[in-house]
Structures are given as structure tokens and as C-alpha cells.
Design a protein around this nucleic acid. Structure first.
Lengths: 254, 254
DNA sequence: ACAAAAGTGTTACCGTTACACCCATGC
DNA sequence: GCATGGGTGTAACGGTAACACTTTTGT
């Protein structure tokens, strides 16, 4: 093997999940490529890192280009960098390698607004909330239900699988749910979030409830929310101070 | 911010842990820098990625340059890539960024032979097993006890902390111990390994024992090993077939 | 009154913890 | 015999899972 150093362009690819807690759906954000290679394939939203830009900032930049959202959780996932992962390396650009640092993000479907208005109807019969024309031109951005994924460009399916696994782990062992929920939420909101990501049968509601309350970091605001029929629900707030001592400890939020 | 793309050199930095199960010590491999910046500081063994070389291969290459070892566990840790992490970026080389993909490895101290013979005495009164001269020239490679670390170059302390955390997690939740142990081992060997990494009080021996055996992936070879005084110990073998179904399941090896 | 949503309580069960105890060997 | 290391057993405790039940609202 040559002892010459490789020159890299570094890209950031985001696995952006959104949970629709109302209808129990888990989405991932995909964009349709308009360039070769993998033209017309769906891919994870990504970008190349610019001069003076940190990896994380690059990740936030693509995110901000695609969606407007208030609360989200973002963390680095994995770095994929074999010399064969991108076919571009073989023909163009004199020996430049493309490295992909992937990030994963979680946000609530209800809170997210797709910025690009060149959106199209979702495969799952999902109604589109933007007024955009349906077009095949550049910038097609869509929430895809995880259960109805198309074939993806590059090694993006692998990245997505890795992200999905991490998402489920994170939810079980760390309080990322509270970074996605609004300030005030009901225990049912929380439970629905867990249901859509982990599946219906991860836990009984009443057990989930008592476990979470026992931790002591959910502050009961006393106020109730009336959502039509049925007993009104208590609004809780995540008390990060009360949580602090539990940090780093192996907690299970099941 | 400029919209120009950054050009990267990609480095791999290894956090290589070794456990001395006999004397209950946990080491990390450090090398002394002989170049500016951070000349004479200790740092994690690292290298820049060459043309046609995968990240993981680069990680194995440094490892192989420093130590000879049979059984080890290696996995990617995290990618550190802020534009300010390496002072080299500010003055030399026209805007080239240095990115560090870190890997962490675990191996047994008893199995590892340091290749570089320019080694020196360990701070902890640790006897050096190589015959090398003590010198301050390039290539100084040493096992440092985790409890007696020197100041490290770059952001290597942060990388090390991250690796240490991952090591403890991995040991609790996945069977990496068996990648480090020899084919045949006693339950006490296993227990000692856990003790040195997780601390003495992580679990009672008898409980550790019954938990591990209950899983069913430890094959009792029937043969005994006589190590001086005391009852001889049974030699076990890790049965990866019996473990396969448990894979991906959330196991706790406490 | 009734259905729907929120919240409480109960019980059987299982795994963990903290020990005490037995076994095999070298000296 | 006895110290040493290996291996087994057990009883109390605490948490979990599954389920029944009560409370508060809108219609």
C-alpha cells in the first residue's frame, strides 16, 4: 500500500427521526438526489463540511435548511469511511476520499415544518401539510414512514439502521424524550412517544407511569389540561436539577 | 462563513486499554511526542490515514506498530473534528483541517508485547519487561496506569475519558471480555477482568458466577487447571453459537 | 347515565443481594 | 490439620408485570 496520505472531503449525513405520537408513526427525513451518482435515489440529508465549520455545526446547518423546529435532540452517530463507500472516488477527483460523519436527530413531527416546498405526497397515504407543487426537481424532501422505506443511495440504509438502533437505546436509557417534548406535557404524551419508537408492548401504561414518577424528576405543575372528553390530564415539567444527580447513573426509562 | 469546502487530513487515534488481571491494574498505551506541537507531551498512539486505507485498517496499523498481541477487541469511538482542536491548523498548511477518528481497543496486559524497545520505566514502579535502553528519543511507548496519568497532548484527555466510559459500558452489556481472554479460561479469570475494569465491588463472586453460568454460553470443558495451592478450577470456553440467539438482546453481564 | 381518558392500587412472581456453607488441593 | 482458592445453596428483599379498579370529565 502507498504511504501517501489520503486527502479527504468530509460530509455529514443526518438521520433525522420524527415521532408522530398522535398516530403512532415514526418517520425519517429523506431527500431525493438530483445528481449522479444515485440520481433519483432517496438519501439522507447531508452536506460537505465548510472551512471553519465544526462537524456539529454542519449537521445543524443541513437540519436548518430542511426543517424549522424548536425542540430537538442531536448527537453524533458513527463515521463511515472505507475507501470504497462512495463510487465517486473511483473516477472523478484525483484520489479524494469522501468520509461521512453521521448524526442522528430526534424531533416531534407536530413541531416540525418542512422548509422546502417542493414536497410530494407520502407513500403511506400521508397528507402533505405544505402547499408545494408536486415536482421532481431538486430539493425533494419528505418524511418517510420507517415501515415503508425506499431503496437508499450509497450506504445510507446501513447508516439508517445504525441510527434506528441508537434511537431505541437512547430512549430507554437516557432522558432524550424531554428534549423533544414541549416544556409542559402530560404523562400520556410521554407514553405515546415511547410507544411509537419502542412499539406498543414495551410497557403497560400504569407501570410506565409509576416508574417515571418514582424517579422524582417530573415536576407536577398542578395545572390540568382539558382535551375534550375524559378526565383532564396533569401537566408535568422535566426538572433538570432534580435529574442531575441521576445523570451518568445507569437509569432505565422503559 | 465561507462557503468553501474544508480540506481534511484524517487521523486515527487509539485508546488502547490493557488489563492486568493478576495485579488488578488498568493501563492505557501512551506515546511521547517528539515533534511540535506538544513536543515531549504524552499522547494517544495515532496516525494519519493513507490512500486506499480504511479507517479501521489505519487503527490496526498503529496498533500493530506498537504491540504484538493475539486477542483483542477494537471498535470505533467517536470523531472529534472542531476546527480549533489542533493548533497546527492556525499557522501551517493552507487551511487543512485535522480530523480525529478515535478507536478504542481492549487487550490483556499479559498477552501484549511492546514492539518499540525505546521504553522507559513506568511511573507506578512498574517493572519494564523489555530490555530497551531508557532514552528520550522518538517512539517512546508506555503502559500508563489509569490512576497515574500525565498531562496529555491535544484533546487526548477528553478522548481517553470517552473511551474509558465506553469500556465500562461495553463490559457490562456485551461479551467483549471473551474476545480478550484466551480460548480456555476459568471463571475467576473472567471475574478478575471485570474487577479491574469495573472496580472491586461491582458484584459478589458467587453471584457473578451463577449469573454467567445461567446464560448458558459458557461451555464447561471438564478439564481442571491446577495453579498451586487450593482447589483446581474448571476451564470454560465461550460458546459463540450458544450466545448467538442472545445477541442484540439487552443482556447484563454485571 | 355512559363512555372516554386519567390515575391508583394490588398481588403473584422473579431476579438480585448478601451471606453462609461445602469441596478439593498443597503444605 | 489448616490455609487457600473453587464452588454451591439459601433466605430476605425489592422491583416488575399484569390486571382490576377508581376518578373526573364531556355529551
Amino acid at each position: 500500500m502507498s504511504k501517501e496520505l489520503a486527502d479527504f472531503k468530509v460530509g455529514v449525513d443526518n438521520v433525522i427521526f420524527s415521532v408522530d405520537a398522535q398516530l403512532n408513526r415514526l418517520f425519517v427525513l429523506l431527500v431525493k438526489r438530483d445528481k449522479t451518482p444515485y440520481e433519483q435515489y432517496w438519501s439522507l440529508p447531508g452536506t460537505l463540511v465548510r472551512k471553519g465549520e465544526s462537524l456539529e455545526n454542519a449537521a445543524y446547518r443541513i437540519l436548518a435548511e430542511k426543517i424549522k423546529v424548536k425542540n430537538l435532540y442531536l448527537e453524533q452517530l458513527y463515521t463511515f469511511g472505507g475507501p470504497e463507500r462512495d463510487p465517486r472516488e473511483s473516477f472523478d477527483s484525483y484520489g479524494v476520499r469522501y468520509l461521512s460523519v453521521s448524526y442522528f436527530a430526534l424531533l416531534r413531527y407536530e413541531d416540525a415544518v418542512l422548509i422546502d416546498n417542493h414536497t410530494e405526497l407520502l407513500p403511506g397515504g400521508q397528507k402533505n401539510r405544505t402547499v408545494g407543487r408536486e415536482t421532481e426537481k431538486s430539493g425533494l424532501t419528505t418524511w418517510y414512514n420507517l415501515k415503508e422505506l425506499p431503496e437508499l443511495a450509497f450506504d445510507h440504509q446501513e447508516i439508517l439502521n445504525y441510527g434506528h438502533k441508537r434511537l431505541r437505546n437512547k430512549l430507554e436509557y437516557s432522558p432524550i424524550a424531554f428534549e423533544v417534548l414541549p416544556e409542559l406535557f402530560t404523562l400520556n404524551d410521554l407514553y405515546q412517544l415511547y410507544c411509537t419508537v419502542l412499539g406498543e408492548n414495551f410497557s403497560d401504561y400504569s407501570n410506565f407511569r409509576s416508574r417515571l414518577l418514582k424517579f422524582g424528576f417530573l415536576y407536577d405543575t398542578g395545572t390540568k389540561i382539558y382535551r375534550g372528553i375524559g378526565r383532564p390530564a396533569t401537566l408535568y415539567r422535566f426538572d433538570s436539577e432534580a435529574f442531575a444527580p441521576l445523570k451518568d447513573r445507569p437509569l432505565v426509562f422503559i
